[in-house]
Structures are given as C-alpha cells and as structure tokens.
C-alpha cells in the first residue's frame, strides 16, 4: 500500500458476509423447506431480504442458517406453502 494510504484500511470496506455478525442467532423460528413438495419457483429466493437463500442450478433452494434471521417472508410468499417456520430449540 502506498505510503499515506493506510487509512483506506479503516475508511473503506469490502463485501463480506456477516458484517453485522452471525445474524442466524437472531432467529426464533427457522424456515424449513419441504424439498419434496417444493415447486422450484424461486420466489423465496427472490424475496429473501437477507440473501440467505440460494437458488441452485437444479432450481431447488438452500437456506443459509448462519445468517437467516427467521423473518418468515419466504414462508409467506411460498405459493404452495411448503416452507414451515419451526421454533428454534436451544442447542
């Protein structure tokens, strides 16, 4: 780094997950997808605020529980209602 530009290390930031910590711990309810009944429409992926749902190559979805906050939007928008919001238990 050019002399004098050290401040950019603190002034600038770069994209990385978990910028507000492990937000999965915020969750009270966990979305669980019934993969067998999923119609692979991708709406849960499209509306997830946190970008914690991946819409995979085969159009199935995978939820990143490290960061999912459990808002339940995915379950709400699922047209076939195959996402259940399951109460988290103490591990």
């Amino acid at each position: 780094m050019m002399a004098g530009l050290e401040f950019t290390k603190y002034l600038l930031s770069r994209p990385a997950p978990g910028s507000a910590g492990a937000t999965g711990t915020w969750r009270t309810y966990r979305p669980v997808v019934n993969q067998d009944k999923c119609i692979k429409c991708g709406l849960c992926w499209l509306y997830c605020p946190e970008d914690t749902i991946d819409w995979l190559e085969d159009k199935s979805v995978r939820i990143n529980y490290d960061y999912c906050k459990g808002c339940g939007i995915c379950a709400e928008v699922c047209p076939v209602k195959v996402i259940d919001m399951v109460k988290e238990t103490v591990v």
């Binding site: 002034l11 600038l12 930031s13 770069r14 994209p15």
Partner: peptide
Amino acid sequence: EPITMGNMV
C-alpha cells in the same frame, strides 16, 4: 471495485 466508503466501523 466493490468498495464502500463511509459505513460504520
């Protein structure tokens, strides 16, 4: 480059 200036530290 996807840098951000000015978010909290």
